[in-house]
Each structure stands twice: as structure tokens, then as C-alpha cells.
């Protein structure tokens, strides 16, 4: 049985009110609290280290997999390895996420290492949310690490969000793309207080006509700090695009360190970064509609990262 806190965490990170349909694995304070497999999707506990293997049969269409992690025990720290094997021609949605509720003064941490093997012609949508809450003074730390290996003509869309309650995060994503593989990543991060967040993308565009598109939108409020690092290696005829768009408020700080590295004359790589405070004319426009300056600010920020 899940407690009220656990239920709320699940709702925050996975939009789940009841047990989901289809395959799922709910990990709570290091234990598998619930699991379901389907004919096409198997979930197996690893024997050599903490974590699971998610095995999706070739040709599986339209199924979802939920693998939320919730931690409600103060001071609990874990590193979990989840490997996804996505069969050829499959078309699936994977919803992951981690919620920490802490009330004490100890550091609570979750480090999830997710590795995706995306088979030929397969299509994956991967959604990941990170969320923290509780009155505790102990730091809530999440260090998600994602490794993506894409085979020929595969397609993956990754949506990742961290809006509240995580004090420190180091988010690493490393991808290798085969021929005609396409990877799209959308990241939304908001930090406040003294939080810090680093995201680090490294993409090897190895296959002919492969492509990667990274869009990062972030808001840094109060005294928080964010660092955006990206490195695109164009090793073939390919296209790569990274876009880092950030709003800073109060004493917030955002740095973008892009690297585009073309090793092939047919590689086309673009990086764009725009960092600044909310445009004065945006505030003015909303104020002429009758919003106060504070309300206007909230609307602009919420729209930006929603």
C-alpha cells in the first residue's frame, strides 16, 4: 500500500492517480512496490546491480511503460541502472521520473542511469520528470544519466523537466546516432533559492543523414545557478542543432558552453543561445491587458517552461 505522500509524488512525476495501464514498475525507497508486464513488454530485475531491464519486443505498437521512482525516506541514497531494449519497428512511450519527499536534514539522492538501445526503425517517446518537496533542510539531489544508442532509421523524442524542489542536479545525456536516426530532446529546467543545475549533452552524429535537435529552456531565479554544456560531433553527412534559451531573474546565473565539432564537410551544425532577463516589452504588453507586473512575470515564466 502506498502512503498519501507516495501517491502525491507519483501524481507529480508520472501523472498517475492509480496503477497505470500496461507495463510498469514502481520503485519506492529502493524496493519494487508494484510491477506489471505485458505480452510484449517484459521487466526483469537485474541480478548484478540495482535496477531493471525493460525488454520491448520487436513490432510492439502503441504501448506505454511507466517506471516512476519515489523516495520518501530521509537520507536515502541510491544509484539505479535501468536498461531499455527497444525492438525493431516498435513504437512506444516510456514515462520515467523521480520524486523525493524529504523532511530531515540529511542528503537524499537518486542517480538513475538509463540506457536505451533503440532498434532499427523503432520510435520511442521518453518523458522524464524530476521533482522534490518537503520542509527538510537536507539537500535533495538527482543525477540522471541517459545513454542512447540509436540504430538505423530510428527515432527518439526525449522530454525532460525539472521544475521544483531539486537542490542539485547533474544531468548527463550521451547519444550515438546511426544512419538516418533522428533524436529530439526538449529540456525544461527551473531553479530557485540556492539550487544548482548542470546539463551536459554529448551527441555523436555517426550515421549518414542522421540528425539531432536539442532545445533547452530554463529559468534561474533567486541565487540559483545553471550550466548548459553541449557537444555535437558531426562525423558524417548530418545535421545538428542546439538551442539554449534562458531567462534569468534576481541574482540567477546561467552559462551556456556549446561546442559544435564538424569532422565531415557535409556536417551542418548550429548552436543558438539566448540568455537574459524577461523582455521589458513582454511585461508591458501583459500589463496593458490589466495584469500586475508580478502576474505578468509569472505568466511569462510559466509559458516559457510549460
Amino acid at each position: 500500500m502506498l502512503t498519501e505522500i507516495q501517491k502525491r509524488l507519483l501524481a507529480e512525476v508520472a501523472d498517475l492517480k492509480a496503477a497505470p495501464k500496461g507495463a510498469y514498475n514502481i520503485r519506492s525507497d529502493g524496493e519494487s512496490a508494484a510491477r506489471n508486464t505485458t505480452e510484449n513488454i517484459n521487466i526483469v530485475t537485474k541480478t548484478d546491480k540495482p535496477g531493471i531491464d525493460i525488454i520491448i519486443k520487436p513490432g510492439t505498437k502503441g504501448e506505454d511503460v511507466h517506471i516512476p521512482v519515489i523516495i520518501s525516506r530521509d537520507g536515502y541514497q541510491e544509484t539505479v541502472y535501468n536498461d531499455f531494449f527497444i525492438g525493431e519497428d516498435a513504437d512506444v512511450t516510456i514515462i520515467a521520473g523521480c520524486g523525493i519527499h524529504s523532511t530531515g536534514c540529511e542528503l537524499t539522492e537518486h542517480s538513475g542511469v538509463h540506457t536505451f538501445y533503440v532498434g532499427k526503425n523503432a520510435k520511442v517517446k521518453y518523458i522524464e520528470k524530476h521533482y522534490g518537496e518537503g520542509e527538510g533542510t537536507g539537500e535533495r539531489v538527482m543525477n540522471p544519466s541517459t545513454v542512447i544508442v540509436m540504430e538505423e532509421n530510428s527515432y527518439m523524442e526525449m522530454e525532460t523537466a525539472q521544475i521544483r524542489g531539486v537542490d542539485s542536479t547533474y544531468r548527463s545525456t550521451k547519444a550515438t546516432l546511426g544512419d538516418k536516426a533522428v533524436l529530439k530532446i526538449g529540456e525544461k529546467i527551473m531553479t530557485h533559492g540556492r539550487q544548482s543545475a548542470t546539463t551536459d549533452f554529448e551527441v555523436d552524429l555517426n550515421g549518414v543523414d542522421c540528425g539531432c535537435h536539442v532545445v533547452s529552456r530554463s529559468v534561474a531565479k533567486d541565487d540559483s545557478k545553471q550550466l548548459f554544456i553541449s557537444c555535437m560531433n558531426g562525423n558524417n553527412r548530418c545535421h545538428g542543432h542546439t538551442e539554449c534559451d534562458a531567462i534569468i531573474m534576481d541574482n540567477g546565473n546561467v552559462a551556456a558552453v556549446p561546442k559544435v565539432n564538424a569532422n565531415n564537410v557535409e556536417a551542418s551544425l548550429i548552436h543558438e543561445a539566448a540568455i537574459g532577463k524577461i523582455a521589458g516589452e513582454q511585461l508591458i504588453k501583459l500589463m496593458t491587458l490589466g495584469l500586475t507586473e508580478k502576474e505578468a512575470e509569472e505568466r511569462i515564466v510559466n509559458g516559457f517552461i510549460s
Binding site: R217, K285, T288, R299, I300, F304, S306
Partner: peptide, 12 residues
Amino acid sequence: FAFQQPVRFKGI
């Protein structure tokens, strides 16, 4: 007041 140059908003 309708602006001479309307303002753009990402995400709205």
C-alpha cells in the same frame, strides 16, 4: 493599446 510592433512570447 495595440502596439505598432506586437510583442512575441515563447510558450504563450
